[in-house]
Amino acid sequence: MNAAVKKANQKKIAVLIALTVVASVLYLFVSVNMKYFEYAMSLRAPKLIVMLITAFCIGSASIVFQSIINNTIVTPCLLGMNSLYTLIHTAVVFFLGSGSLIARNTNLSFVVDLVLMGCSATLIYSYLFKKTNHNMLYVLLVGTIMSTFFSSIQTTLTRVMDPNEYDSLLATLVASFSNVNASIVAVSLVLMAIIIVALRRELALLDVITLGKDQAINLGVDYDKTIRRLLLGVTLFIAIATAMVGPVSFMGLIVANLSRQLFKTYRHTYLILGSGLIGMLILVGGQLIVEHVFTYSVPISVFITVGGGIYFLYLLLKQRRA
């Protein structure tokens, strides 16, 4: 990369960081009643942190996922973690009731989500990938089938469910940043750090992997193993984000592509950072608008899904023209 482009990209990162900081500060302090300052902070600060972590998880996982599949219009939603999350929560309410310990205790339900999603991710995306001779398309196909399978079971369960139970279930199936506490945040951060450290070698190979399988092997990359480990990391990152706040579906596609458009480089240091920062900006800024302009009448996931859908169509049309 020549020096001018490098400088321009560093500047873009700096601007994104500045914007994210501004959005975060606004989110914390807009229309705070100074009399109840501490109380307001105790509500807003954890929420902000959760949003920042989620955004980073989804943003970075999406870039990595797109790069290992070598396709820029896929999202890690294809891995089926969203529908698995929905199914777990529906099953808990259905079989144990909305008054059960798992349904009421957020810490417990976080652990249950994480363990189930983590185990199935390891099983499906590590073991199966090996079994199918490292065929990425099989894995995607399995992901899609799993998603449909989980959603079908979930729909069946909700059909026969008690309407009152369903009502209380519905609240947990929409992405929300409010019911997360400090211990969940701490656990998530530690897990993310472990994953990043464990995958540091593979992450450094991402630039070469975008050249395609043949070229990567030619340049001495142990391709199959690298892809398998990265795929597992992506799934775990998505699992962490989903277990924390619920399904945040379209966001990955938007932030990853905005980052690619903004940086126009193959360097993943910039792409991942950019994607994470753009995600933070969208989530924090969006939540700011939801809380202060629409006064909670529209959940943020609606904005993200509508915006994501329009952006996805734009990407498809643009690809066809090119």
Partner: peptide
């Protein structure tokens, strides 16, 4: 694999790069 890649290079026809390079 890394040592081998300093001794032997292969160029195939399947070179579709999605990146701006």
């Amino acid at each position: 694999s890394k040592e081998l890649s300093k001794r032997l290079a292969i160029l195939t026809q399947s070179n579709n790069i999605q990146m701006k390079l």
